[in-house]
Design a protein around this nucleic acid. Structure first.
Lengths: 336, 336
DNA sequence: CTGTTAGCGCATTCAA
DNA sequence: TTGAATGCGCTAACAG
């Protein structure tokens, strides 16, 4: 591999000069610059980023820690972060941290070894305290989809409560009064926050949430959706609409209903959350809350990069809002 | 950031000794090792990977170049590569290279600057020649989903032809003789190869492919599927089954048919390709060819890593086979 | 078993 | 405007 020395030797200049033309900074004579550039091209010289990182003490790489890239939600998150990376001449180091706090911590540690100062982290299994400790050690660490009061300015989060309220209001305004919920067993705080939002919206509407109308799925996927709605149905519960924790569960619900001969939305309406591709693959297409993950991750990546080289913690927080996407899985029952 | 020198000083040993205990290799006295380890833990020392890479001339990172991580197929590919990475104590540098040859080449270049010797590349826009040139310069570069004869031992590919034949035979064995195809405008060789496979299988069955029964979509997604099937339908073509280029297009097809009141599979059968999550989100669930991307990427990553540190080009090629997953989108019409 | 020495490839003073 | 010198943090001979 050709090094800066090779270029310097062939061009008959010092390595400092080569370094200057490579980074396009510092004064270099016009002819000298041209000569050096020519040699660079001829030799196909590419600066060694590891060496640059070593000496300049910054790696210009962004770490992205998520449960699993293959899950569309997280793939989209990674994509958003990657976009920001291109604007800043950064690269992205990605790490799947699936299933445990240890996996997440290991991923962060690996990034630290890389002297990767900017990190976007979607944690699933770490406690607020653990995250605070981490944040203290790593100035460029930013959390996505999580709000921790003490380090709110490092959190890029979605108003899940309002989102759930919005979804609920949509159902109420379509005449639904018997609303069921299919959620998932708690892992991170999302599910609980959304449940609170539903509760608020329902009581605001002068109704009250029937706690026996909550079905739980073990996992937040199709199977979990089927499981949750089956529990409700098998218990003989009656309702005209279901609020699902996310699109995957919603699709599972639609399938389960379909296999039982229950029509969506004629017999039961279903609302999802996330607005992933899957919501539009389903028949009927899902009415759902749009979760702007890509934009959030993009924003978070920029924030992480900024924080990592000047510790200006502006103290402000970073809140995004989901919004309703109306499609075909909700019917109006008010005129019945 | 605490360095190896700090540890050495505090522990009262040389940096070499610290280096030895960190890397768990070379002889170190038992008590000495314990003492050093203690200091490492107390100080929270983490070796600087950039420095390690610089001196050892290998970065222990795997590059993954794909069009877009947010697309489930490529997210899964990335996931497979990432798995392999964990087994080898590597990290993954991911790069979206969307839409053009330049984007792909830039991504590779960035990886080269990283001295990232092992790369898994799913190219969409580079010619065989370009790829051969690249392969020559980078011993650890491996191609996924592409076969280039000259560098076959660097290609991890799927038998698209056999896959298409398999799918076709399934339709034929279910009594279908009027089979339409919805494909996409050619970008990389896939589409053409699959078309050839269909042609072969159809003539093997003693039938012949009606060339007017091929509908094209601009993009290989839901919209493309709708577009392709609409072209056929609007032209008044008659057929009892459709072979789609992939699952996304298949789902688009199902939607289009549904909106026209045509039932799947009662009126028209549909077969997809890939076996992504979306195929199971659709109603009816899609019969499709399973594409083992995750396994292939895992394999490719291992191959890239191996190739990058010992250039043993065994000369053998790496072929994977897709297989049929029967679900609910194909009906048997032979008894009609 | 342990320490000393000499770079890896590059950016950054400081002189010239 | 350019070059020489120094060191980033670490590993790899080589001695001892």
């Amino acid at each position: 591999m050709v090094t800066i020395k090779d270029v310097a030797r062939v061009a008959g200049v010092s390595t400092s000069t080569v370094s200057r033309v490579v980074r396009k900074q510092g004064k270099v004579g016009k002819v000298c610059r041209a000569k050096v550039q020519k040699v660079i091209d001829e030799l196909g010289y590419r600066p060694n980023i590891n060496a640059q990182a070593l000496v300049s003490k910054k790696s210009n790489s962004l770490g992205v820690v998520i449960p699993l890239v293959s899950m569309p939600f997280f793939g989209t998150l990674a994509c958003g972060a990657e976009e920001a990376t291109k604007e800043n001449h950064y690269r992205v180091l990605i790490s799947n941290a699936y299933g445990s706090e240890k996996a997440e911590l290991d991923a962060i540690d690996s990034l630290v070894q890389h002297r990767c100062g900017a990190i976007v982290f979607h944690s699933m299994h770490c406690s607020d305290d653990t995250l605070c400790d981490l944040a203290e050690k790593i100035p460029g660490l930013v959390f996505v989809n999580r709000l921790i009061a003490k380090i709110a300015h490092r959190c890029v989060w979605l108003d899940n409560n309002m989102g759930a309220q919005e979804a609920t209001k949509h159902l109420v305004s379509n005449g639904h009064t018997n609303i069921a919920i299919v959620s998932r067993k708690n892992i991170n705080p999302d599910a609980q926050v959304r449940l609170d939002g539903v509760r608020t919206a329902i009581s605001n509407a002068g109704l009250q949430l029937d706690n026996t109308l909550i079905g739980y799925g073990t996992t937040a996927d199709l199977a979990g959706g089927k499981e949750g709605v089956s529990a409700l149905l098998d218990a003989g519960k009656k309702f005209t609409a279901i609020l699902a924790y996310n699109d995957n569960m919603a699709v599972g619900i639609v399938h389960e209903l379909h296999s039982r001969g229950i029509r969506v939305p004629q017999d039961i309406s279903v609302v999802g959350f996330d607005d992933l591709l899957i919501s539009v693959a389903c028949i009927p297409e899902l009415t759902t809350m749009h979760y702007p993950v890509r934009e959030m991750a993009h924003y978070a990546a920029n924030l992480a990069i900024e924080l990592s080289d000047n510790e200006s913690s502006s103290g402000k927080t970073h809140l995004f809002m989901p919004h309703l996407i109306e499609r075909d899985s909700v019917s109006n029952v008010s005129t019945l």
